[in-house]
């Protein structure tokens, strides 16, 4: 039994040796699958996800009532590998938690992509979770952004996301609790946290999900730290995209 989150106050260090305002190692690559219209691979610590984009395409099937609109429809499919967590677990197809995440991602991108450019069509995001260690929704959002960039679908700005929490649990009611950035799974299990996504480096919040209870007084601090984290995430994502761009230019120039 290693130490638990209560040991934070001893030296202001988290369970994995980070400070309160530090992200985990975030690395990403884009165009990982040549066959897809757009693809990405992203790691936030030990959370590892793959995203592929197909589309915009004509809607599958005939005469779907929903796909007939003036805007493109964003569809999100998430599959979580059985081996991704600590325990091997088979999730059913319509797991409520997973569908809710898919819904959040779809809504977020529906509002960010210029879907009005692609009437009567569908953009499908397929997300695969290879390994889970907290901040799953945030990782999925970030990976989707990269894959959509790779697919060349116009959007207002990057969607950058991360989680923010608080160092002590709801019931301990500790007023001196510090906000935390980018929680891993152990922290998520013990502490209150939220997932926030912003539009690029602005303070515009485009998605905010919180399922745990927390004192209202702590929320502001958590949100501020989360938004700040999103800006750091944007720098990293932007770096990945630019590196890719340079490579393409170099390859095409030669």
């Amino acid at each position: 039994m290693p130490l638990d989150t209560a040991s934070y106050s001893l030296a202001l260090l988290r369970l994995d040796g980070r400070r309160w305002n530090e992200l985990r190692r975030l690395t990403a690559q884009i165009s990982t699958q040549a066959a897809a219209d757009g693809s990405s691979y992203l790691e936030m610590g030990n959370t590892k996800v793959i995203c592929t984009v197909s589309g915009p395409t004509e809607p599958k099937g005939t005469g779907g009532s929903r796909s007939g609109g003036d805007n493109a429809e964003v569809r999100v499919e998430i599959s979580i590998a059985g081996f991704s967590g600590v325990d091997r677990k088979k999730r059913s197809r319509n797991d409520k938690r997973v569908s809710e995440m898919a819904m959040t991602i779809a809504n977020t991108f529906t509002n960010t992509l210029f879907i009005n450019l692609y009437p009567h069509s569908t953009i499908t995001l397929s997300l695969h979770v290879l390994s889970q260690d907290g901040s799953l929704l945030a990782a999925l959002l970030n990976a989707s952004t990269l894959a959509l960039v790779d697919a060349g679908i116009p959007m207002r700005d990057y969607i950058c996301s991360c989680t923010a929490g608080s160092t002590s649990s709801y019931s301990s009611n500790d007023e001196a609790a510090d906000p935390l950035l980018d929680l891993n799974s152990t922290e998520e299990q013990e502490l209150p946290f939220l997932t926030v996504a912003t539009l690029g480096a602005t303070d515009d919040v485009s998605a905010l999900v919180m399922e745990t209870r927390v004192q209202i007084g702590r929320l502001e601090g958590m949100l501020a730290v989360g938004v700040d984290g999103c800006k750091q995430v944007r720098e990293i994502l932007d770096g990945v995209v630019r590196a890719r761009g340079k490579k393409i230019l170099k390859d095409s120039g030669s």
């Binding site: 290693p2 030296a11 260090l13 369970l15 994995d16 040796g17 980070r18 530090e22 985990r24 190692r25 610590g45 030990n46 600590v86 325990d87 260690d133 891993n184 152990t186």
Partner: peptide, 13 residues
């Protein structure tokens, strides 16, 4: 269960 945890080593402790 087999648990894998990250460890961030630092010099500012």
């Amino acid at each position: 269960q087999k648990i894998v945890r990250e460890l961030y080593l630092r010099q500012d402790i």
